[in-house]
Simulated scan of single mutants.
Amino acid sequence: MMNRKHSIVLIILGIFLITFIVMGCGSDKIMEPVQSTKNFPTDGLTLLERAYEDIDSDGDKESVEVYTSAQIAPDGQMGWDTGERWVLLVRNGEEAFPLFDDSVQYGELQFWIASINKDQIVGPKSTDLQRKIYAAVTTDIGFKLLKYHWDEQNLCYKREVILNPTDQWSMRHSNKYNIPDPARIESNGRL
């Protein structure tokens, strides 16, 4: 009789464990770490935008930069091709964190820096705010929204795919970087 009860309990635990493994628990969001590299090479890339913000709340501003492999033509227009390399980079002194480094087919990458009042403090100081970087990657067939935040414990950024709808067929989007404006590359305030 005792063996039968043990068997039933083990079967129930086995079913629970299999369900737990297959279905998962909690959030289905996957957080990927983005580690730093020393002196990330940007030779041959065109800087499109740079913003300064204290992303890791250490009191010093980091540089958030967007690059593309497209070059500025002699007439001042961007020489877009069908698939450009796009880089979203955070520089902190000698360290560089390549948040995004990939080819984008007929599209672009844009970013936003959000200051989140996680403790809901009235009139928070800069150190009370948590910064998150949101990036939208648009292509001719899809749209993806990414979120990055500083992981103070592991000293790296964490990347999360917030939105990447399945079965995307085509996408229309505006092109922010259609005509480069050197006066708009640097941003110390609002983007």
Rank of each mutant, 00 (worst) to 15 (best):
M1R: 13
N3R: 06
R4Q: 13
R4S: 08
H6G: 06
S7N: 15
I11E: 07
G14V: 03
L17S: 14
L17K: 11
M23I: 09
G24D: 11
S27L: 10
K29G: 05
M31S: 10
P33L: 09
P33T: 08
T37F: 08
T37S: 13
G44D: 10
T46M: 04
E49C: 05
R50S: 09
A51S: 10
Y52V: 04
Y52G: 00
G59Q: 02
K61N: 07
S63Q: 03
E65Y: 05
E65N: 05
T68K: 06
A70F: 01
A70P: 03
A70C: 05
Q71L: 10
Q71V: 00
Q71S: 13
I72Q: 09
P74H: 15
G76T: 06
G76Q: 09
G79L: 03
T82M: 15
E84F: 02
N92S: 10
G93W: 04
E95F: 06
E95D: 07
A96N: 04
F97E: 00
F97Q: 01
F100N: 13
Q105C: 10
Q110G: 04
Q110T: 07
W112M: 14
S115R: 12
K118L: 08
V122D: 12
G123T: 03
P124W: 02
P124S: 01
K125P: 03
K125A: 06
L129G: 01
Q130P: 05
I133G: 02
T139K: 11
I141R: 11
G142H: 05
K144M: 11
L145W: 09
L146Q: 07
L146C: 09
L146M: 12
L146P: 13
D151P: 06
E152F: 04
Q153E: 13
N154H: 12
Y157K: 04
K158Q: 10
K158D: 12
L163Q: 12
T166D: 12
Q168K: 14
S170Y: 02
K176N: 09
Y177H: 05
I185G: 00
I185W: 00
I185M: 07
R190E: 13
